[in-house]
Computed example of a mutant assay.
Amino acid sequence: MPSRRPRRRGGEHVPLDVDRLLQGVARVEHRAGAEWHVQPIGARSAVKDYACPGCGGTIPPQMPHLVVWRADSIFGDRAIEDRRHWHPGCWRAS
């Protein structure tokens, strides 16, 4: 009976990106009739101040937060320019 283990393909070994794993997984959320990309940002990746559109407060460096942008924008990749950084609690409350 043949083995069910997948065969290893040729190519270089890609090391595990632990920082990316700790950040969380990007997802699409549906809110108010629109789709939104939601990407968690870990403390190590937060390197500057951002203004949270939910509360108007500052998200300081090294504070985990969310980056959110429209998934269903008619502007395609340009929608990425419209990303906003949110406190997780402010995004949940929006």
Rank of each mutant, 00 (worst) to 15 (best):
I74A: 07
H85G: 06
L66W: 00
M63Q: 10
K48M: 13
G11Q: 07
I41C: 09
D82P: 01
G11A: 12
W36V: 00
H13M: 15
S45G: 10
Q62E: 08
P6D: 08
A46N: 11
C55Q: 03
D77R: 11
R20E: 15
E81T: 14
L21A: 07
E12Y: 13
G54H: 03
S45M: 05
T58I: 13
W36G: 00
A43M: 06
P15S: 15
G10N: 14
S3C: 06
S3Y: 05
A51E: 13
R84E: 13
D49C: 05
E35D: 11
Q23E: 15
H85M: 12
Y50W: 05
H65S: 08
S73Y: 04
G89F: 12
K48V: 10
I80S: 12
P88R: 08
V47S: 06
G89A: 05
V47W: 04
Q23P: 00
R7F: 08
Q62G: 00
P61Q: 01
P2G: 05
I74G: 07
R84Q: 14
A43S: 11
D72T: 02
A79Q: 03
R92S: 10
A34T: 08
Y50G: 12
A71M: 05
G54A: 00
A79H: 03
R4E: 12
A93E: 06
V38Y: 00
A26W: 01
R20V: 12
A26G: 15
A93I: 00
R5W: 14
A32G: 03
A93G: 03
A93V: 01
R44C: 04
P88E: 15
R7V: 08
I80N: 11
D49Y: 13
L66M: 08
H87V: 02
G10S: 11
L21I: 15
T58S: 09
G76T: 05
P60I: 13
P40V: 03
K48N: 06
M1R: 15
I74K: 13
Q62V: 00
D72M: 02
G56D: 04
R4A: 09
P61Y: 01
D82M: 08
R78Y: 07
R78M: 07
R7G: 09
H65D: 03
P15E: 15
I59D: 00
R44Y: 11
R8V: 12
R31E: 13
D17T: 12
R70C: 02
S45W: 06
L66P: 10
G56Q: 01
G56K: 00
R44W: 09
I41E: 05
P64H: 02
I41G: 02
G57F: 00
Y50F: 11
S94I: 02
T58Q: 10
P64C: 03
P40E: 06
A32D: 11
L66R: 06
L21N: 04
H30F: 02
F75R: 14
R4C: 04
V28E: 07
P40Y: 08
V47Q: 07
V67D: 06
I74R: 15
R92P: 12
C52F: 02
V25K: 15
S3Q: 09
T58C: 05
V38N: 01
I80Q: 12
R9I: 06
D19P: 15
L22C: 10
E81A: 14
V67Q: 12
H65E: 04
C90E: 08
S45C: 09
R20T: 13
Q62I: 00
E35W: 15
C90K: 03
H87F: 01
L22F: 04
E81N: 10
G10R: 14
F75P: 00
R9D: 04
L21Q: 09
M1K: 14
L21T: 05
S73Q: 03
